[in-house]
Every structure is written in structure tokens, then in C-alpha cells.
Amino acid sequence: MSARAAAVGVLMRRRSWRWVEALPWVAAIAGFFLLPNYLQLGTQILVMILFALSLDLLLGYTGIVTLGHAAFFGLGAYTAGLLATGGWHEPLSGLVAAAAVAAALGLVAGFVILRTSGLALLMLGMAITLLLYEVANNLNGLTGGADGLSGVEIAPLLGRFGFDMYGRTSYLYALAVLFVAFLLVRAIVWAPFGRSLVGIRQNPARMQAMGVSVFARRLAVFVLSAGLAGLAGAVSAQTSQFASLDNLSFDLSGTVLLMLVLGGPGRLYGGFIGASVLMIAQDGLAKENPVFWLFWLGLFVILLVVFVPGGLLGLRARLGLGGRDG
């Protein structure tokens, strides 16, 4: 093989699937059969993985640090919830509508906040979340205000599978949405567009010198990411049949960021690991002693961020167990 074919091959093979990528899906399906009493927690984890995946496009791939991503999650949740309480119970069209509304907000918000960077961008993202939070809080009649939006009734999926109290349909529904979204995101990050995002993260000036409108690319990925966050919010509202102000909180923005950083940003699977570890640990340990659990979590995150900047997946790569940077 010529040196050229070898070098080109190295570059092109990175797009290919590897067998370890089947692991999270095998684990998720195994969980469905082996842990029937934990399907509700499992559904929440799947939702947070999807949410973290949307943030990974921004933070991990493009290098946009935001603490306002709950705005899009919450808007998606309320859109899906309000559609259902308003009489539109079909779940899949509700998902599409919620993602579209969140993406539309992403377009408007991104147009403003992406003109800034660093601290200003962080502040503007938070401001938009606060704005939405107060709107949802004040539109009492529509959103239920601080009590949350209850009575979200969802029709059986595809007209056949009802959202039962055991959460079986919910779990598989969330898993299917996550899988489709993941296929989309994975294709995007390895396509030329996704590679240019990584270029922007590494050096915007260089991409500009290649003739790239950095602003346009950032805006495009922002809209995409907002839509996916809205999708996650919609799945959350449909499966829990509830939307609340928590879905629009600063706390949620921080939690999803923590999950992604914990798992490892820019690697697609960071959210899978971060959300699972955090939520399972929380479920197990927080019941015993909520205060002390947070203490150990805080200590763990500090150590991780200081010593392993790439998160848990970065740790794996450091130990020479493979792992691939985006």
C-alpha cells in the first residue's frame, strides 16, 4: 500500500463504527429486561443522555461554553406538554413540533449570543433561561406556574403501545428517540460540517482563513443543538406526563454540563457515561445521605477536572485503552 493510501486510510477509518460502540445500546436493552423496577430512572437517564448529547455538539465539538441550555430543554418540554393538554395527544408529531420550536428559539437566541464570546456568552445564555423561566412562572393559567404542567396525556405510540404505569413503553420510546438522534449526531460530527466545527473549536482564526464564516457555522450548530435539547425536553414531558419550572432552571443547565464534563466532552459518549454515573450514584447514595453524597461528588469532580481534563472517557484514553478524540 502506498504511503498516500495509508495516510488517507487512517483518516477515513475514524468514521467507521467500532464494536465498543454497541456497548451502551446492549446495556440499555439488557437494563430493560433485567431491571424492570428501574425503568422510570432509566427513562430519565436516557433523556439526560440525549440532552447531554445536544450540549456536546456545542461544548465538546464547537467549543461554545454555555450555561443556558435548559432554555431549549424546557421550551421543548412545555411545547410537548402544552400540545397534549391542548388536545393534541399524538407523541411523535409532538416531538417534532417541540424540536422545531426549540430550534427556532435557538436561531433567534444564537443570532444574538453568538456575537459574543466567553463571559458575555455565558451571561446571555443564562439570561435567556431566566427570561423563559419567568414567562413560564407567570403564565399561570397556561403552564400551571410553580405547580408545573400536569395532565399531559399522551396517546398510545403508533396507535398501539400505551404509556403504561410500569414505564415500559416510555423507556423503549426514550431509547428509540435517543438512538435515532445519536445516529444523526454521529453522522454529523464525522461529516465535513462536523469536522469544521472541531476546527473552529481548535482555532477559529484558522477556519476563517480557510474561507469559513465562523459565525454562520456556529449559528447552524446552535440551532441543531437547541432542537435536540428541545427533543430531550419533549421526551421528558411525554414520558413523565409532566413539565415543570425545573425543566427551565439554571440548576438543570449546570447538571447537564456536569454530566458531560464528567463523562468527557467531544467524544459523543461522554453524556452516556456522565448521565448514567451521576444519576445512578445519586439514586443509590442520595437516599441514604443527600448531604454527604454531594460532598463526595464535589470532591470527585474537582479531582477529575484538575487531573483528567478529558473526563472519564479521557481517562480511558490516557490509560492507553483506546478512545478517540473528535
Partner: peptide
């Protein structure tokens, strides 16, 4: 081609 969202292999 950098705008290609999908494919582009």
C-alpha cells in the same frame, strides 16, 4: 463542502 451536514465521505 464544509457545509455538508451529512455524508461527504
Amino acid at each position: 463542502q464544509g457545509r455538508a451536514l451529512l455524508g461527504g465521505r
